[in-house]
Design a protein around this nucleic acid. Sequence first.
DNA 1: GCGTGTTTGATGACGCGTCAACATCTTGCT
DNA 2: AGCAAGATGTTGACGCGTCATCAAACACGC
Lengths: 153, 153
Amino acid sequence: MGEPRWLDEREAAVWRAYLAVHRELHGALDRQLERDSGLSNADYALLAPLSEAPGGVLRSRELGRLVGWERSRLSHQVARMEKRGLVVREECAEDARGSMVRLTAEGRAAIESAAPGHVATVRRYLFDALSAEEADLLGRVLHRVLDRIAADG
Amino acid sequence: MGEPRWLDEREAAVWRAYLAVHRELHGALDRQLERDSGLSNADYALLAPLSEAPGGVLRSRELGRLVGWERSRLSHQVARMEKRGLVVREECAEDARGSMVRLTAEGRAAIESAAPGHVATVRRYLFDALSAEEADLLGRVLHRVLDRIAADG
DNA sequence: GCGTGTTTGATGACGCGTCAACATCTTGCT
DNA sequence: AGCAAGATGTTGACGCGTCATCAAACACGC
């Protein structure tokens, strides 16, 4: 870390644009979800995999793996959602340490009412702005970045 | 919003990769800053423009404009940073409503010690993974997305 | 001058996210 | 069996971010 290579003007502009997109897109999605169905991004992130799981039930660990969250974050979010009746926690039969997270009828109704608008927003702001080739390239670049971060640990 | 066009598998994969990059990159930068200099991403975001401003002073409104934050967020963050001695708030001479945010010596020392490692991390995880052409394309795509979001309001 | 509407900023409440500490259970080694 | 080590989840504290609300001060028309 002796002599850093600073970002040149092009790179700095890309970085600022990335930060701005992060901020604006996250904000827009959050506002759209909240307005249309009273859900947050965090709610949606958990409801989506739960709604696709057989029976609407997932082991907590598996849910965490699917969304890429650590245990504490997941536990807090599930606690908030349980308080609002979107999910319930149940004991895990195979492993007494574990806990199962089950979608309630209310939770399923919420995700089903929220999904179309959410997807439409992602499409309008992101994919409608990209050609198919650009989307593919973006995907490749993103995976490359993920690999580099994962390689460090 | 009657019949939504769902994301196809390629698009869904790109979207998941975007969310993952967002999560991992933000986390990696946050950990690196915290470890190396006791700063957070939010601290860094404010210290950077302040350190480049003449005299290390900026009007609150201007600082908010530079980082793209709303007033409340900025006010909270400046309050936290003032408590830790990184900045001080002063009255604004030209406009009695306003407030000036001034970098302290401690704040300047913090940003100067943090910057090389922060830039190195951004470079290692993002720009070292991209060719120059890819970085340019990414910049164009990001600006297009920003324009679409801004167009909606 | 005097209202009226706008701009600037601060604050409290609440949800989100991380870290450290903890409790409990499983696994595997001896 | 017994014990150490690891896995799974929860909790409390604290920083981050948004929204709604408030207060103070400017701007502008009258």
